[in-house]
Amino acid sequence: MTSDLTLFVNPTAGRGRGTRAAGPAARVLRDAGYSVRTVLGTDAPDALRRAREAVAGGTGALVAVGGDGLVSLALQAVAGTDVPLGVVAVGTGNDFARAVGLPVRDPEAAARLIARSLKEDGGRPLDLGRTGGGTWFGTVLASGLDSRVNDRGNRMRLPAGRFRYDLALLAELAALRTVPYRLRLDDGPVREVEATLIAVGNTDAYGGGMRMCAGARADDGLFGVTVVGPCSRTTLLRVFPRVYRGTHLTHPAVTVLSAARVTLEAPGVTGYADGEPLGPLPVTAETVPGAVRVLGAS
């Protein structure tokens, strides 16, 4: 493997933590014997183009320095290739890093783990989700109430972290409604489902630690599918705190399913994957086993 590595940096992640983390991470990697170059990009499309150029050019690893948004971009560049992904998680939510056992907001520890993994095992193969439109995702595909909360939370500048999504949820509860879904799992029949939301998890959490798909794993070739049926605002407010522990799955309004391929249809609903908008449903997502090698993942 080449000793040339590429740092893929989001300078705005975590209110500037991306920029501040790049230096210490690069120093650790250079001390470990690697040559490091940095890719920034003027915007997301430009950054992705540069990341893909680095991957096509044979970089030894693409190391994402930022949050879940940057990891999502990095996945578009490395998924299905031989180039491993390193993650220096310094964003707001860091759900992907937590799900695969990586350090959070400790760039030097993350870089040491990346260097050791490059030398010892080349990274752990993990599953990714892929939509019919070709978008890869590492955490959760959200739809319904959670996609509307995601949309509102992404527009909010304050507060930081999980509290932003808590406030966004409270705002969206004012317009709470169920959605008539058409849900298909693998090659099974189409199910007509009235639901508040349906979340499709490659891993368990999104939105800064909301374990909506608790139990979903990125190494079993299956999605965890969480269906929240009709329920009142009072019930949602009472049950919502349990989502951070994953204990909401035992509530009678919640159904847990699993499948390797999921199709969702619903009128007027936008899908989100890894916190990024996919566009209006319908969407089909499938698991791709071993689609990415993640350096230092446990």
Rank of each mutant, 00 (worst) to 15 (best):
A260Q: 15
P241G: 11
D204Q: 15
V87C: 11
L257P: 05
S147T: 01
A266M: 13
G66W: 01
G86Y: 00
D82E: 14
S117K: 06
Y181K: 12
V63N: 09
A168C: 09
N150V: 04
G66R: 06
P107A: 12
F96T: 01
T6W: 08
M212Y: 06
R261Q: 13
Y165H: 08
G188Y: 04
V88I: 06
R49W: 05
V71G: 05
T178C: 15
M212E: 05
A142S: 15
S3A: 15
I114W: 01
L48Q: 03
G268F: 00
G279K: 04
Y272P: 00
G57W: 09
D4Y: 14
H248T: 07
T234L: 15
A44T: 12
D187Y: 07
T196R: 08
A160N: 07
P180C: 14
D146I: 11
G134W: 01
G209D: 04
G138Y: 02
D219P: 09
A111M: 12
R98C: 04
A214K: 14
L102N: 04
S232G: 09
V71F: 00
V256E: 08
M210Y: 01
G57I: 03
L62W: 00
D68N: 10
D204V: 10
V83R: 06
R242N: 13
R20Y: 02
F8S: 11
T12D: 07
G224F: 03
N10Y: 07
E172A: 05
V294S: 12
V36Y: 02
A44N: 09
V71E: 01
E172I: 01
V239P: 07
Y244C: 10
G14L: 03
A174F: 11
N94A: 10
V65T: 08
L278T: 00
G221H: 12
L281P: 00
G57L: 12
H248I: 05
G246N: 06
F163C: 07
A160Q: 08
A64V: 09
N10D: 08
F163R: 15
V227E: 05
G91V: 00
L167M: 13
A160C: 08
S258E: 14
D204Y: 11
V243W: 04
G207E: 01
T38R: 11
P180E: 14
A266R: 09
A214S: 14
P280T: 13
A110C: 11
V262M: 11
V71D: 02
P280N: 13
T81S: 13
S258R: 14
L237W: 08
L70T: 08
R245M: 12
S72T: 07
H251W: 02
E120W: 13
G60Q: 11
A260T: 09
L29H: 03
P24V: 12
V140H: 02
A47W: 06
T270D: 03
G16C: 09
V193E: 12
F96Y: 10
A89C: 10
F223R: 12
S143V: 01
A199V: 10
G132I: 11
L169G: 03
G296R: 06
T139K: 09
P159S: 13
G221W: 03
R105K: 15
G132Q: 07
R242C: 08
G129R: 10
K119L: 10
S232T: 14
Q76D: 06
P125F: 07
P277W: 00
L170P: 04
T59H: 10
T203W: 04
V149S: 03
A171P: 03
S35A: 15
D219H: 15
A285W: 00
T234W: 12
P277K: 05
T178Q: 12
V288P: 04
